[in-house]
Amino acid sequence: MSGWTIGIIGGSGLYTLPGLEEIARHDVTTPWGAPSDTIVEGRIGTTRLLFLPRHGAGHRIPPSEINARANIDALKRLGATDLLAISSVGSLREELPPGRFVVVDQFIDRTVARPASFFGTGLVAHVSLADPTCPRLSAFAAAAIEQAGGDVAQGATYLAMEGPQFSTRAESLTYRTLGADIIGMTAMPEARLAREAELPYALIGMVTDYDCWREDEAGVVATDIVAQMHANAATARQLIQILATALPEDRTPSPIDTVLDQAILTAPAARDPALLAKLDAILARVTSSRDI
């Protein structure tokens, strides 16, 4: 086995991972509740993979009710070293048509109803999030998309909205003025939590539609989205296969692996033991920090 264990978070349309040499299935209990579904552990080549469908099999869980803390915690407990998230998204740019894959490097978070941190009253943490995705894993994923025959754009800003409804036209036009390139409902707080868990995170957006900013077109059409989603998912499965076999044998450390060492944390004497116990998987490695 290689030094990589890649957690794959599958988005809409990606609920299974054919071709995975299955090793085990894990129903994980976390202090934050249950993750979205059973996590399937397997191997492609020498790379260990942990696959979790974000919405659960059959798309059972709406965006605002996804237990992102449990998902990230469970993958961390099972030994994930890096996370690759795959999400269906709408496009806010003419040059990002349906069918294109987009490597995300920035986020605008417009969600309002979701727990966004593992930390809280009794144990505060201020963690760097200036560059929320991992350039190394993103580059590997982009190369795999190209090898799979996908059309890929590198570098985009993802606007996370609450959902589950799609945007109004006024909202869609506003998001374009904010500098967003694509729009989705699930990458936040997922990316925030991955950073707190010291897991390098890459997000691949699979464009299904143009949202509703194009004034000469109808809004989001479900039949068109589903058809494009299935086509995108087929390419996504190929990119995972290619990525797993193309990763270097040795995983060199990433700065994100130790990001909590540079976080600002509540002073040890003031920390809440109950919250500290819930954070056992997150803080297991931490050896230093900048205490308040």
Rank of each mutant, 00 (worst) to 15 (best):
P62Y: 05
A85N: 10
A85C: 13
A70S: 14
S91G: 10
T81V: 14
G90V: 15
L83I: 15
P97D: 14
P63H: 06
R93F: 04
I86R: 02
L92I: 11
V89L: 11
R93K: 14
R60T: 09
A74Y: 09
S88K: 01
V89A: 13
K76F: 00
L78H: 07
P62F: 06
G99N: 05
S64V: 09
P97I: 05
G79K: 11
T81M: 13
H59R: 06
R60I: 10
S88L: 00
S87A: 09
I66P: 02
T81P: 13
R69S: 02
D73F: 14
A70K: 10
A57D: 13
R69D: 01
A74N: 08
I72S: 07
S91V: 07
E65G: 04
L75E: 02
A85H: 06
G58I: 12
I86T: 09
G99M: 08
P97S: 08
E65I: 00
L75R: 06
R69M: 07
G79C: 12
G79S: 12
L78P: 04
G58Y: 12
H59A: 07
V89M: 12
S88F: 00
H59W: 06
E65Y: 11
P62C: 07
I61P: 00
G99D: 09
P98K: 11
P63R: 05
L75P: 02
R93W: 03
N71W: 05
T81L: 13
A80E: 09
A74S: 13
G79H: 12
D73N: 14
L84P: 05
L96V: 09
G79V: 13
A85L: 12
R77Q: 14
L96G: 02
L83Q: 01
R69N: 05
I66M: 11
E94D: 15
E94I: 10
S88D: 00
H59N: 08
P98S: 10
L92V: 11
K76V: 00
L92W: 11
G99P: 09
N71S: 08
A57L: 15
I72K: 15
G79M: 14
D82R: 11
K76S: 04
A57H: 15
E95C: 02
A68L: 07
P62S: 09
D82L: 01
V89D: 07
D82I: 01
A80S: 15
S88Q: 03
I61E: 01
R77S: 11
A70Y: 11
G90N: 15
D73W: 13
K76W: 00
P63K: 04
A68Y: 12
P97L: 09
S87D: 02
S64W: 12
P98E: 10
A70P: 14
P98C: 10
N71Y: 04
K76L: 07
E94K: 15
